[in-house]
């Protein structure tokens, strides 16, 4: 039993179980941070963060369900 390897595998799967989901979240946060740097109203960033996260969950679940032959 490789305990250390299992610990790292567990940590990886906690945050990166679905590469598309993780990539989309990181890209969204990076984009909002970049736009925020332009000095726009913070409320726009907040609204974009909420809308982006909801859109991501819709797209990744629909894509996965379709991949598994459901939708």
């Amino acid at each position: 039993m490789n305990i250390i390897g299992d610990v790292f595998k567990e940590l990886y799967s906690m945050f990166m179980a679905d590469a598309a989901l993780s990539g989309a979240i990181l890209a969204l946060v990076a984009a909002i941070a970049a736009v925020d740097g332009l000095g726009l109203d913070h409320r726009i960033g907040g609204a974009a963060l909420i809308a982006g996260c909801l859109a991501i969950i819709v797209v990744v679940t629909a894509r996965e369900a379709r991949r598994r032959g459901g939708g």
Partner: peptide
């Protein structure tokens, strides 16, 4: 916040798929 988004939305995605019968 970013780690929570990765972890929480991962759980939510899996729970939706299980509730829908896809998993």
């Amino acid at each position: 916040g970013i780690l929570l988004l990765l972890f929480g939305m991962g759980w939510l995605r899996k729970a939706i798929l299980r509730a829908a019968g896809a998993l």
